[in-house]
């Protein structure tokens, strides 16, 4: 028994480890948490962008949402002598020092999505949740104004992500600011709840929203699975046809797919930056300079434009 468990462990390790081919440049990619589909997509985008190039090889590490593990990974990459480091850090403060140490050793560092403190890195690439939330707020205010032509306010439900996380805070404050900027008088937020990014929670909260509010015009969820959960709740109540669902993230297999199926009316993309990171990496490795800060463009996907790749915000 003891030996068979050990043998099985070795087998799993052997099948999981990559055989490293010799490429000109080795890029280390430290991902903070592969438990989220969006981050799996980020890695997939990096892999895809790097696949066509024989000069580079990317080694992926997953910190499993553990800051100290990620710190150790950065140090491992430095010791292994990678030519460039891409990191999507879990948290800014505790990862600033290891990233700076790598940078000072002459390893170019691309910071993806979340920030580190100071300026000891080569380039930051990320999207702006506040901007995306704001775009969603403006879009929703406009859409609700069309509905509520008679002067009545549009009744909106907001299903929030985990409100202790910055993306949820920004998608909330951006959304409110967007409404204020566009048409504050037409939107009435009748129900808001924290669904912690989870579809099953969103469905529960939406059932309560439906029970308490006989009329709901629109649901804004901080991610697409949340909007989908709300849709399923409305469908079970037979009210999905009278409600517009809007989500954020716009992953091809989630948001874009829901829009194509007509479940969501719009999904606002939160780009992963995977492709852009590899493009920047190639420039840096080729001796060119890249901007210190790159803000990614976002798209909105609606039924009209989803097949054409969405519309730039």
């Amino acid at each position: 028994m003891k030996y068979s468990v050990i043998a099985l462990s070795l087998l799993v390790v052997a099948s999981a480890g990559d055989a490293h081919a010799k490429a000109k440049w080795v890029i280390g990619m430290s991902q903070c948490n592969l438990g989220e589909p969006w981050r799996v997509q980020m890695n997939a985008d990096i892999k895809k962008a790097a696949a066509g190039n024989a000069d580079i090889e990317v080694i992926f590490k997953d910190a499993q949402n553990d800051t100290l593990k990620q710190r150790a990974q950065v140090e491992e990459f430095v010791n292994a002598g990678v030519n460039l480091l891409i990191i999507s850090p879990k948290e800014a403060a505790p990862l600033t020092a290891p990233v700076a140490a790598a940078f000072k050793k002459g390893i170019p560092v691309i910071v993806l999505d979340r920030r580190v403190l100071g300026s000891s890195y080569t380039s930051f690439i990320g999207a702006d949740n506040k901007k995306i939330g704001m775009a969603a707020g403006k879009w929703i205010a406009k859409r609700v104004a069309e509905l509520a032509a008679g002067g009545a306010k549009g009744r909106v439900v907001e299903l929030k992500g985990l409100m202790t996380s910055t993306p949820a805070q920004d998608r909330n404050s951006g959304f409110r600011a967007g409404i204020k900027a566009a048409a504050p008088a037409v939107v009435d937020i009748v129900f808001e709840a924290d669904m912690k990014w989870l579809e099953a929670n969103a469905r529960k909260e939406m059932e309560s929203a439906l029970a308490v509010n006989p009329k709901i015009d629109l649901v804004y969820a901080h991610n697409d699975p949340g909007a989908h959960g709300a849709y399923l709740a409305a469908k079970a109540a037979g009210r999905e046809k009278n409600i517009i669902f809007v989500g954020i993230d716009g992953l091809p297999q989630e948001g874009q797919s829901f829009v194509k199926q007509g479940l969501l009316e719009a999904s606002f993309e939160y780009p992963t930056g995977g492709k852009e990171a590899i493009e920047s990496a190639l420039k840096i490795l080729g001796g060119k300079t890249v901007p210190k800060e790159v803000t990614l463009n976002s798209h909105v996907f609606t039924k009209a434009n989803v097949d054409k790749g969405g519309e730039c915000l």
Partner: peptide, 23 residues
């Protein structure tokens, strides 16, 4: 669970050979 799913949700959007998703 993560291994057989490749870390992604298994939904009605199925990845095709040309990297597009078919519902």
């Amino acid at each position: 669970a993560k291994s057989i799913s490749g870390g992604q949700k298994i939904s009605t959007a199925v990845l095709q050979a040309d990297d597009s998703y078919k519902n």
